[in-house]
Design a protein around this nucleic acid. Structure first.
Lengths: 69, 69
DNA sequence: GCTAAATGTAAAGCTTACTTTACTCTATTC
DNA sequence: GAATAGAGTAAAGTAAGCTTTACATTTAGC
């Protein structure tokens, strides 16, 4: 699953540290998400959508084919 | 986090078993989600939205206040 | 009231999301 | 050029999502 976190974070001029704090997660989590090492929980996805003022679907791009978990 | 899975599943006239199979998860997972014992992964949320032909936000209701994980 | 289908519970085990710590690398800036 | 900020890696540990199995309860039709 792809995401636009890095791009959207840059647009809001936030450091990874600042975004992490706003979300209540560690900086490692932000790094891992931006690097697409794993997918966020749905709760984190909702929080991100709230901060970036958009829909979850605007941040995360899910491709049908690949049966990810 | 609240969800409308049971309601939407009923609307499509699917059993828990059938929905589970369509999603590629176990029946236990469906039961646990409907009973709101835990939240789905974002992948599962996307799959549910696809099956129910709606947005993730139409299925799952996230309340700000409660700092869930 | 039996039967069978659908729903539910419980518990043990695996996988993945997330944390914590410690250390590296690159750019500024003073 | 030393110091600081921002981004990155690695690895070990905890927490939460999901599976599997086995058994209980509810509901509907006969």
């Amino acid at each position: 699953m792809k995401n636009r976190i890095k791009e959207l974070r840059a647009k809001k001029d936030l450091t990874q540290d600042q975004l992490a704090e706003q979300l209540g997660v560690s900086r490692q989590t932000i790094i891992s998400l931006e690097r697409e090492r794993y997918n966020p929980s749905i709760i984190l996805a909702f929080k991100l959508a709230h901060i970036f003022n958009c829909k979850i679907e605007d941040i995360f791009i899910y491709e049908e084919e690949k049966d990810e978990k």
